[in-house]
C-alpha cells in the first residue's frame, strides 16, 4: 500500500536519522548502566557516609534492592523508562522525573538565553571577521574571543563575579532561581552565568563561521558576484553565507549541546540549580537511578541536536533538497 506512495527522500533520510538516533540511545543506556555499575564503592555506604553502622548499611541495601543481579535491574530500569517512569531517587526518595523536570527547566532556561545571545553574535562577528580578513577588526575579534575561550570557565566565572558582583555590585553573585520567581527577577539572576557562557562558546562558533565563509570566498562564483559590483557585505551575506551554513550549523549544535550538558562548573560558581550540579551530587551518593536518568537525558540532548544539525545541513544543501 505504501509502495505507491512517493516518499520524499529528505523525509526518508530524516526518519532514518531519528531511528538510528533511538537505536544509539538504547546502546548508550546500556553503556551508562555498565559505567555506573563499574563505579567503585557502594550506594548504601555512600549515602550513610562516615556515619554508617553495619546494621544501617544492611537495612539500606535490602531496601534499595541492591541485592538483585545487575541484568534484572537493567531490564527493570529500561522498562520503566519506556513507560515514562524514571523511578525514585535512592538517597532522598523523591520522584526523579519531578526533580529532574525542574532542574532541566532551569538548565534549558540558562542555555536558551546564552544561545539566543551567543549564536547570532558569533555569526555576526564571524561575518565581520571574514569581511575584514587579516585587518584590525578581524584581529580584535579573534584575539578577544580566543582569549576568553582559552581561559578555563571557572577563571572567567570568578573574574566576572569579582568585577560585576563584588566590586561594582551590578548583578547578584548568586544566580539562584526558584519556582514562583518573576521573569525579570529570573533574568536578573542569570545575567552573570549567561555572560560567562556566552564568552566561553563564542569563539568556537565565530571561528567556524569565519573559516567556512573564507573557504567559500575562494570560489569562482564569488568572484562573479564581486565583478557584478555587489558590496563585500552583500557578497558575503547573499552568496557566501548560504553555502557556509552546513559546517556552521554543526558547530552551533555542538555548542548548544555543551550549554545543556557541560556547564556544571559555571553552575557551581554561580550556585545555579541546574542539571550538572544535580548529577554530580547524585554521583557522589551513588544514586544510580538518578545518574542513569540524567545520563540518558544528556545523551538524548546530544543525539537530538546532532540529528537537527544533520537535517538542517541537508535542507541547506540544494543538491539534497531537490533530488533528481
Amino acid at each position: 500500500m505504501l509502495a505507491g506512495l512517493r516518499v520524499h527522500p529528505v523525509f526518508k533520510l530524516v526518519v532514518q536519522r531519528i531511528a538510528l538516533g533511538l537505536l544509539l540511545l538504547v546502546a548508550v543506556s546500556a553503556i551508562i548502566f555498565l559505567g555506573v555499575e563499574a563505579l567503585p564503592g557502594d550506594t548504601a555506604q555512600a549515602i550513610l557516609g562516615q556515619s554508617a553502622t553495619p546494621q544501617a548499611l544492611a537495612n539500606l541495601r535490602a531496601e534499595m534492592g541492591l541485592d538483585q543481579p545487575p541484568l534484572a535491574r537493567y531490564v527493570d530500569w529500561l522498562g520503566g523508562i519506556m513507560t515514562g517512569d524514571l523511578g525514585t531517587s535512592l538517597s532522598n526518595k523523591t520522584d526523579i522525573a519531578k526533580a529532574i523536570g525542574q532542574r532541566l527547566g532551569n538548565t534549558l532556561f540558562l542555555a536558551f538565553w546564552a544561545a539566543i545571545i551567543s549564536v547570532p553574535l558569533a555569526v555576526l562577528l564571524g561575518l565581520v571577521a571574514a569581511r575584514y580578513n587579516g585587518r584590525w577588526p578581524d584581529k580584535i575579534i579573534s584575539g578577544v574571543t580566543l582569549s576568553t575561550i582559552s581561559l578555563p570557565e571557572f577563571v572567567v566565572g570568578y573574574l566576572v563575579l569579582y568585577f560585576l558582583a563584588v566590586k561594582w555590585q551590578l548583578f547578584p553573585s548568586v544566580a539562584m532561581v526558584f519556582p514562583g520567581m518573576g521573569m525579570m527577577e529570573r533574568l536578573n539572576a542569570v545575567i552573570l552565568p549567561v555572560i560567562v557562557l556566552v564568552l566561553v562558546v563564542l569563539a568556537h562558533m565565530m571561528r567556524m563561521t569565519r573559516a567556512a565563509i573564507l573557504n567559500v570566498m575562494q570560489s569562482a562564483y564569488i568572484e562573479t558576484a564581486e565583478l557584478k559590483g555587489l558590496s563585500p557585505m552583500q557578497v558575503i551575506w547573499r552568496h557566501a553565507f548560504p553555502n557556509a551554513i552546513a559546517p556552521v550549523v554543526n558547530v552551533v549544535m555542538l555548542n548548544l549541546a555543551y550549554l545543556v550538558v557541560g556547564v556544571v562548573v559555571v553552575e557551581v560558581v554561580f550556585v545555579y540549580p541546574g542539571m550538572g550540579q544535580y548529577l554530580v551530587d547524585h554521583v557522589t551518593k551513588r544514586d544510580l537511578p538518578v545518574v542513569q536518568a540524567v545520563g540518558l537525558i544528556f545523551a538524548a540532548v546530544y543525539i537530538g541536536l546532532n540529528i537537527m544539525a544533520d537535517v538542517i545541513s541537508i535542507l541547506a544543501n540544494p543538491r539534497l533538497r531537490h533530488p533528481k
Partner: peptide, 19 residues
C-alpha cells in the same frame, strides 16, 4: 539557607551582601 558549596562563590555572596 542558600546552599553555596563553592568557597569563592560563598565569599563573594557574603561580600556582595546576598547572604
Amino acid at each position: 539557607i542558600l546552599v553555596i558549596n563553592d568557597g569563592t562563590a560563598r565569599a563573594a555572596a557574603l561580600q556582595s551582601g546576598q547572604v
